[in-house]
Design a protein around this nucleic acid. Structure first.
Lengths: 132, 132
DNA sequence: ACAAATGATACTAATCAGGTATCATTAATA
DNA sequence: TATTAATGATACCTGATTAGTATCATTTGT
């Protein structure tokens, strides 16, 4: 089981790089060189960060991206939601018949509690705390 | 992201069913009927539970399985480990070059802390607490 | 001997993660 | 104003993992 996938991981590194460049516009080629990741994949990730509003894109020649807000205001849960969809630890109740025996609902409840715990920790982990 | 996969989920239900049958030998057909899951898949899961020592198998005609220990002594982490392998939330450090920039190691550390938290909660969740 | 169970194991199908590829659009600059 | 260098959108491909099937050997009660 994986908590964070590759794209989320890349996104964290990218955001940290931006943060260290202050308000300079950085393009995807520079990121690819510095962070050593496949260019088209990086571009896709940057586009997603752009659409989500975490990055601001500058089009045309000499274009690139800038952080649109401080990393104090972005947390791990935000990124996981963006790249991996909503955190859902078990689809226990969702497939076919919702769990045929009542006792299984206790599993669902436990998992929900664990899920809430995890999400709250992820929310409290600001990306700024990962810098430097 | 999924914390527990389908087979782990099925395994929990199966174990709970066994617990409610006390020391009676239950065969896979009965489980399949009661819990409404695909027979060959259920068989595979039971075999794994057997190999791992959580169930005791009785071969031959009128055979089946029995719980080999109380559900007080089996926890969610045991099952997850059995069916999904060791819990590892991020392979951040493992792929190719171990994270090229030091700052990323902070991510690794955070994830490790979160992982420890999750595992300890899973370990403290005994399957017996999911009964009835 | 036969039937009814598990043991072992190999195979298949579907889904998802991790990437590629392409073409349109935008804007600085020569 | 034509060129060039950037992003936007989107469709596609590929390998890994999950979910499930199939088959045959072995065991044991009747």
């Amino acid at each position: 089981m994986k908590l964070i996938k590759r794209d989320t991981d890349y996104a964290v590194r990218a955001l940290c790089y931006f943060a260290n460049q202050k308000k300079r516009v950085v393009n995807s080629d520079e990121l690819v060189k510095r962070l050593k990741m496949p260019r088209p994949y990086m571009r896709k990730i940057l586009q997603q960060l752009g659409r989500s509003g975490m990055l601001l894109s500058v089009k045309g020649q000499a274009g690139g991206f800038i952080l649109s807000r401080s990393l104090d205001h972005i947390n791990l849960s935000d990124l996981i939601n963006l790249f991996q969809g909503p955190t859902q630890l078990s689809d226990h109740l969702l497939k076919k018949k919702p769990c045929p025996e009542l006792k299984n609902c206790r599993l669902k409840k436990k998992l929900d509690r664990i899920e809430n715990l995890i999400v709250s920790v992820l929310k409290s982990t600001k990306i700024s705390s990962l810098l430097k």
